[in-house]
Write a protein that binds this DNA or RNA. Structure first.
Lengths: 227, 227
DNA sequence: CGTGTCATTTTGTGATCACAAAATCCTGCG
DNA sequence: CGCAGGATTTTGTGATCACAAAATGACACG
């Protein structure tokens, strides 16, 4: 059977590069929500069949994600989700601490009162996920919380860099949460929301940095302990 | 006429993904040395013909570089070198100031005495380029200088981020140097070398930051003045 | 039962094709 | 001479093919 686009479907919105964008979004959210496990190899034909498209757009998307260091092309050409190492973890943590608080500050002037309310809603959902132990939903919502702030900056430079960082550590965090559970997680979201409401640059900077340290830094020992 | 690989050449080293890597290197150095002008569109078939390969590896490379924000895919699918804007310039400058001094610090313990000598050699060549007014050679050597330091860090996270930043501002800087010349350029390379020789973390951090500010920040007014 | 070897399958890569949308060029009209 | 409109070319995209390398599995031998 040929691929989906062969069958003439009445779908009206097959604009330029629509298939590639669909594949890109699928793989990205898959990485961010932990549906791809570090070390597991991803095959072009496999993903293409799974998504019902030809291998061509999948090839381009995987190359793109490899360029963002979200995937790793090994010397034999196989593509896989990179393994996390202690030094890599430290580097991602350092990069996040350098970039994310700064971008949050940049976004602060663009955040209206309605945004604080929206963030509050997301954070409430996050709290529910933590008690339910729904790690996948937590990852998705935590990403939504942070990037709702970052996106308000309108940045086209810092934001893609941070995007790349999240794609790099998210798959690993998923395995960590799967092991230690979500109950022990703490965040500084409420402080961040309060800082946004007050328009306090320094408080927001501190809240984001503390949130990164609490959410990620505390789990750094896990990889040192676990083999 | 078919493409080059059709003719069976005795080339022994046609390993996995060799063509793509060749194309990738060609476009990357082209961007870093200013052979691609901002705003100018890059065509897949054009580049493929120019490099003597099929459009296929070019497609993947351009997608990769678009993922790194070194190229821009417009809504109609055309690919072009992004234009520089004042806000974009400020963001790149801010990101560089955040990341590069930090990575230099990380690299410092791995820099031996021989490295300082090698950097000195590069800096001497740079000084020659400045008096000769050879902007392209300057861009290439300045990149070599900075990344000789950064690469010593062995970083696999921060280094790619900085790589992306350089690909974003290099084409623009080329046009600036073409307009104002290279005579007015100053750098803090000698201070950086001295800091490396002394193993002084803080001095190296300050030297790299000052170098970025002098080499890039001073020219920020150019884009505000020139339309 | 373990192990090395060979056949089979899977997989990435480069190339080419078909198609639609966009851009470009040319022409004819005002 | 300027400019609108249509034909032509260019260009990106998705699909498929051919090929070589790598991974996998089967199987015979020790």
């Amino acid at each position: 059977m040929p691929h989906r686009r062969s069958a003439l479907q009445p779908g009206p919105a097959t604009s330029r590069g629509a298939t590639r964008e669909q594949v890109d979004a699928a793989v990205r959210t898959g990485l961010l929500t932990g549906r791809f496990i570090p070390g597991k190899s991803v095959t072009i034909r496999g993903l293409a069949a799974e998504l019902g498209v030809s291998p061509m757009p999948v090839r381009e998307v995987l190359q793109r994600l490899a360029a963002e260091n979200a995937l790793e092309v090994k010397s034999n050409g196989r593509i896989q989700v990179p393994d996390m190492t202690p030094t890599r973890f430290d580097e991602v943590l350092k990069a996040r601490l350098l970039l994310e608080p700064e971008l949050a500050e940049l976004a602060l002037p663009n955040l209206a009162a309605g945004d604080a309310g929206r963030l509050q809603t997301i954070d409430d959902d996050i709290d529910r996920c933590l008690v339910d132990g729904d790690a996948e939903a937590y990852l998705r919502l935590n990403h939504a919380f942070h990037f709702s702030i970052y996106r308000a900056s309108g940045s086209r430079v810092l934001l893609p860099l941070i995007d790349s960082l999240w794609l790099q550590f998210a798959p690993f965090m998923r395995t960590v949460y799967g092991r230690v559970g979500t109950a022990s997680l703490v965040d500084r979201h409420k402080e961040a929301i309060r800082a946004i409401e007050l328009g306090d640059k320094d408080a927001l900077h501190a809240a984001i940095a503390a949130d990164i340290r609490d959410g990620m830094g505390l789990l750094g020992k896990e990889i040192l302990a676990g083999a």
